[in-house]
Design a protein around this nucleic acid. Structure first.
Lengths: 205, 205
DNA sequence: GTCTATAAAGGGATAGAC
DNA sequence: GTCTATCCCTTTATAGAC
């Protein structure tokens, strides 16, 4: 029993790595067992099936990052500060799990039924509150109002996509592995800059 | 022989659909055969193995969209026009194959060796020419110069990511299926606007 | 709880008739 | 070229000893 927890955690950790690297369909129970330094039978003893193990991993992962992201979005601070902190925080999260976004989005693609239920997006982001903050900010400084949906999509896009498209980006833009980290640091400045200029000088060009 | 071409094309078309929906690992030869209204044996008669069939599909797909994208990037027209045309053109391409970007990016993740060779990114985008155009534009109007890499990444991000994250976006931002097309049309305006304002008023905020 | 051995099903590939 | 039948390896899952 003392060792139970340790084993279960080891399995979850191994499964997480393999699933994130290979996806559900590409993952092999054997590889997970090897990685956890146990045998296949023990996987089934703890999680009964590949499906259940996957669900445990998926839920566990979302449970870990959900609150962090939620905190970044819902903190009651001035808009511009929020944008800077969000981009910085989000990049740091993904930096620690660079393959996570693509893994999650791909599982939704290949099997939405298995995973979509795990998302609780109602509590994650209150668009009304954010739209309100955007409107107030616009009115105060005489900017044009902008649509919160495009605001969110623009920030998420510019923050997440570089990780998802990393291999292509590196090849197309000649970004060597050594300069990748620098590139990310630059984006922490570029993205808020792009977003804030859009808000401030928003006009039909 | 007359019917050969028809069958081969049917197989390729079916394989394309299944691979793009399920990925290489999730795709089943049986499903492809069903979709093409033939039997499994005939798949192997034409393409010998799942690997070969996949390669045929992948190459064929890239061959179809490569030149279109290349045309959008390398056309010698003023910067602002180019941005508008690129975003519009790119969104239209992906609209016809909404699951294609995620499919491609995911195959790179799970098996870079199998697919990365198919990309010929040297001819796709000449960053030097584009950086030159950016610099000239900046100097002419007294903007700050910007890095072509972030320019490209920003445009690609905002254009492609909405398709990749569609299910999540729809759920988090309450975009019903009926208004999705409208949302995309709005982005054709929003993205160039965001990009151009970034260039024009680029400054440390 | 953890192991070895094995069942059972899935899925890619081939043989051979037509 | 196209089909049916089948092979055979892979992979998930279980049985049963320790």
């Amino acid at each position: 029993m003392v060792n139970t927890l340790k084993t279960e955690v080891r399995i979850l950790e191994a499964a997480k790595q393999v699933f994130i690297a290979k996806g559900f369909d590409g993952a092999r129970m054997q590889e997970i067992a090897d990685q956890a330094q146990i045998n296949k039978a023990l996987l089934h003893y703890y999680f009964r099936s590949k499906d259940k193990l996957f669900e445990a991993v998926f839920e566990d992962t979302l449970h870990q990052i959900g609150p962090v992201i939620s905190g970044l979005v819902n903190e009651p601070i001035p808009l511009e500060i929020k944008v800077w902190k969000f981009v910085d925080g989000y990049i740091e999260i993904i930096r620690k799990n660079p393959k996570l976004p693509l893994f999650i989005l791909n599982e939704i693609r290949v099997n939405p039924d298995r995973v979509l239920g795990f998302f609780n997006l109602d509590t994650l982001l209150d668009t009304k509150v954010l739209q309100d903050q955007l409107d107030k900010e616009a009115d105060k400084h005489n900017y044009n109002r902008i649509d919160v949906r495009h605001f969110v999509v623009n920030i998420l896009s510019m923050t997440i996509f570089p990780f998802i498209g990393k291999p292509i980006m590196q090849k197309a833009l000649n970004i060597q592995e050594e300069s990748w980290e620098t590139f990310l640091e630059e984006r922490k400045r570029i993205i808020p800059e792009t977003i804030m200029n859009w808000l401030k000088f928003n006009q039909t060009v």
